Computed example of a mutant assay.
Amino acid sequence: MTKKKHLSQRQHDRIAKNEQRRLQRTDKKSNVVWDDTLLEAPEPGLVISRFGQHVDVEDRHGQIIRCNMRRTISSVVTGDQVSWCRSKQPTGSIDGVIEAVEERRSVLLRPDFYDGLKPVAANIDLMIIVSAILPALSLNIIDRYLVAAEMTGIKPLLVINKADLIDADAQHAIEQQLDVYRNLGYPGLLVSASTGQGMDALLHYIHSGTSIFVGQSGVGKSSLMNNLMPELAAVTQEVSAVSGLGQHTTTVSRLYHLPEGGALIDSPGIREFALWHLSAEEVTAGFVEFRPWLGRCKFRDCKHITDPGCALQHAIAENQISQTRYDSYLKILTSMTQDKPNHF
C-alpha cells in the first residue's frame, strides 16, 4: 500500500490561494444585484439540486426555478427547505433568489481532505447504504456509513446490489453477513437492479419521506435509480475493467420524486468515506453493540485494544460482539489518524 504523502505548507498555501481565486471568479460571474421591487413576495421552496452558485428550487406547484443565493447565505444543499423570491419578469435563466434556509432536521456531512466538512444533503429520513459484489463488497465502508448514520440520527438501510452476478451459495453467504447487521437492528436487502430482485422490498422502504443513496462509485446507485424510475434514463457506466474502481456517474446530488410517493436523492459516488472529523469516543459510540459495555472496563481510560479488564474484549470472547465488526472498528480508528489532513 502506497504511503499517503502529506502536503507541505507551501502546497497548502497554494491550494488556499487557488481556492480564493476560484471563489472570486465565481462570485463575479454570479453576483447578480437584485432590485427587490422586481421580486415577488417570499414563498417556500425545496432545493432539488445545486450547481456552484446556482440552485434549482421547486415551488409548491412542482415547477423548478433556477435561483441565485443572497450573499449572506453560507450553505445550501439538496433537500433544504428555503424561502425564496420569484422574479416578476422571468427570463428562463435565473428567475429567483434564495432569501433564507430553514432549520435542518438532519444533514449528511462528508469530510473533504481540502475543504473540511462538506454537507451533501439535508432533511434526510433514510440513508440507503449501497454496496455491491463489484468493485468489492467492503464491510468496512458499510461500518463507516453506519457510524455516520448514528452520529446524524438518520435511519440506515443496507442494500447489496448486483446479486445477479453471484450464484445461490454466494448469495447465501452474503445473507449471513447481512444477518450480523440485522441482529443489530439494521435492515438489509440483497438486490439486483438488472433483474429486479429485491426491488419491491426496496421500494417499500422509500415510498415515504426523503431517502438518499450513498456508497462507493460503481456500486450501481444510478442503475437502481433507473429501475425505480425508468423515465429518468440516468447515465450508468460499467466498473473500469482496468482498475476495478468505480466510475463516477453522478456529479451533483439531486432530488427526485418517486411516482409511488417519497423522495430520493442520488449523491455522487465516493471511493472512501473518512471519519477523521470524529473523536475516537464518538466512533466507539457509533458501534451500537458496544454501548452496553462502555463504562464497564477496569480502567476509565481503556482504549479497548489490549488493555486488561476491557469489557469489549470480554464481550467478544462471549460472542456478544462480532469479531468482524470489532476488527472493522480498529481499522477505522487507525485510518482516522492517517486520513486526517495536517491543516485541520
Rank of each mutant, 00 (worst) to 15 (best):
V219M: 00
K3G: 14
S335F: 00
V180D: 00
K29P: 04
R182I: 00
R105S: 14
K340D: 00
G261C: 08
L228A: 07
L294G: 04
A121W: 05
H248N: 12
H277Q: 15
A170S: 12
D143E: 15
V77G: 02
P44W: 03
L157P: 02
E231T: 14
T306I: 09
L126Y: 06
T249A: 13
E58C: 13
L137I: 10
D13P: 06
A311C: 03
N227V: 04
L224S: 05
K3N: 11
G261A: 08
E43D: 05
V55Q: 06
S223E: 01
C310T: 01
L278M: 13
Q177N: 11
I142S: 00
L23S: 11
T284S: 09
C310A: 04
M69D: 02
R291C: 09
R66Y: 00
I94L: 14
Y329M: 05
H257Q: 14
I141M: 15
I142Q: 00
I305K: 13
R254A: 11
L189M: 09
R70L: 09
D339R: 03
C310Q: 01
Y205K: 10
Y326W: 12
S106D: 06
R325Q: 10
I129H: 00
G246I: 03
L146R: 08
R296E: 11
Q216D: 00
G116R: 07
Y256M: 07
N183A: 10
S243N: 09
N161L: 05
H204F: 06
K303E: 12
R144H: 06
L275Y: 03
E99P: 00
R22M: 10
S211A: 15
T37E: 13
K340H: 03
Q338A: 14
L38S: 13
R144G: 01
L228G: 02
P44A: 09
H207C: 11
T2S: 11
R325M: 06
A234H: 10
E282D: 14
E150L: 04
P187D: 13
M199H: 02
Q11D: 05
Q20H: 10
F290P: 05
I64V: 15
A263K: 11
L333H: 03
Q24S: 11
L23D: 13
E281D: 15
L108A: 07
